[in-house]
Structures are given as structure tokens and as C-alpha cells.
Design a protein around this nucleic acid. Structure first.
Lengths: 117, 117
DNA sequence: TAGTCATATGAGTAAGTGTTCATATGTTCA
DNA sequence: TGAACATATGAACACTTACTCATATGACTA
């Protein structure tokens, strides 16, 4: 606790800290960023997003492609939809999902390229 | 379970599924992608990465900037270093951290822009 | 050498997460 | 209307995670 106090008052590099602090974003922005990345931070969801970046597909087909249960996929699709990354379209009893946010495609693309390096 | 079997054999849209499947990446690639995004998927870590994208700073200063404990920041820095997102440089008893992967800057930048929209 | 400081680290813990299982909802079709 | 089907959903569970606390490590300095 003493150490913490020291850190708060006497910075090792005051100038650099002040400089960074002045450019700092607000907590809310960082939270939104993290929230978005968190959705990409799961293998199942990143696969789903990759799939949706190529084709609009129904829940059943996505589950089949990923060899996962319908329930698991449905849960994850709900998360993606709640965060406005995916959107759904109902056609009879079939529900088709697609990307709601074209922005994500860029993130996925960058990530794919980097992962393949 | 019957439903699952149906899904695996009789796709709603065989053609689309086959098309996506042919472009599918291997599980390992998706895991790497998710692993990387997961590191960005926490407010503390995304803040740290944002900070490091601007300046090389020591643990103490980062902790002070984020009003977090030294221990918490040290733990997170270790995670970032272990994943080759950050690297450290020792100067006496001070340890300076900086970004190891310039690639991340792009992801952060994109995310900032999107969050501010 | 002893004390102080910056950082690292392991254990413990409370909160969060992704899945399964059982079941509900709503649609189609005989 | 009733059966079959696609999807949604809530509870429960195993697992993970981010933090705190206490302490270790290693470097500087008086």
C-alpha cells in the first residue's frame, strides 16, 4: 500500500505519463472495445463469424458445419446478435443469420492473415 | 440427438454449406485467432495495449495511470508477454514494457475508431 | 551489509463463461 | 388438430479468469 502511494505520486517518468494520460480515452470506450474483442475471443464464435462473413446460413447448417450442438450455436448466436455483430432473418421455421457489422470482417481478415504468417 | 443427426445429413442449404466448408480454415488457426482476441477482450489489457502503443512505460507508471495495483498490472503484463504481444526491457530495477507486435496497433486503432463512431 | 524500492509470483477467491440437458415456442404439413 | 421440425431458452455444471494478499527476487543506496 505504501508502494502504491509512491507510485501514484512519484512517477518514474512524469513526462511520458502525462503525455499518455492526455491522450487516454474514457473508460467507457475501453469497455466497449474489450466487449467487442471478447466476442471474438472464443473459437466457436470466431468460427461462426468467419462463416457468416462468407454466407448467410441457418442455425442448423452452422451447427452441422461446426459439428456442434444446435443449442450451443443458438446460445452463441444470441450473444452475437445482442452485441449487434450478427442479425437474423426468419423464413418460416428457419432462421438465417448474417453479419450485422461489416466492420468485423476487417478484424477477422486481419486476424486470419496474421495467424497464417 | 435425432435433430442433430438430421442436421448432419440433410442440410437446409447443401450448396452453401459445401461452399463455406471448402473455404474453412483449420481448427488451429481459429484457436490462435481466438486466443489473440481474448487478450484484447479485457478492459485492463486493452488499456495497457493502448498505452504501450503510445509509449514504452514501466510497470509502476502503467499501474498509476490505470489506478490499478502493481500486482494486477504485472500479472496482465506477463500474459501479454507470454503471448508475444508485449516485450520487456530491464534497466536496473525498472522494467520497461513496449509492444512486441505492431500488428496489434492496427487492431486497437480500428477498434477505437469503431467505438467512437 | 541492511534497508528500500520495483517487479514477479503463487495461492486463494469471487465472478464470469461455454457447454449440456431438458423443455418451451412457433412453424409447417398431413 | 396433431406430429415433426427448427430454433430459443433457462438451469446447472465444470472450467476459466482477474483480482487481492502475502511474499519472493533482485537491484540500488546509505
Amino acid at each position: 500500500m505504501t508502494k502504491k502511494d509512491v507510485c501514484e505520486i512519484q512517477y518514474v517518468n512524469k513526462k511520458a505519463v502525462a503525455e499518455v494520460r492526455s491522450r487516454m480515452l474514457d473508460n467507457n470506450t475501453f469497455s466497449k472495445m474489450a466487449e467487442r474483442f471478447k466476442l471474438l475471443g472464443d473459437p466457436t464464435r470466431v468460427k461462426i463469424l468467419f462463416i457468416l462473413s462468407q454466407k448467410e446460413l441457418c442455425v442448423c447448417d452452422i451447427a452441422a458445419l461446426l459439428k456442434a450442438s444446435q443449442s450451443a450455436i443458438s446460445h452463441q448466436l444470441r450473444a452475437l446478435r445482442n452485441s449487434n455483430l450478427a442479425k437474423s432473418r426468419k423464413e418460416g421455421k428457419i432462421v438465417y443469420y448474417s453479419l450485422a457489422d461489416e466492420h468485423v470482417i476487417k478484424l477477422i481478415d486481419m486476424s486470419v492473415k496474421h495467424a497464417e504468417e
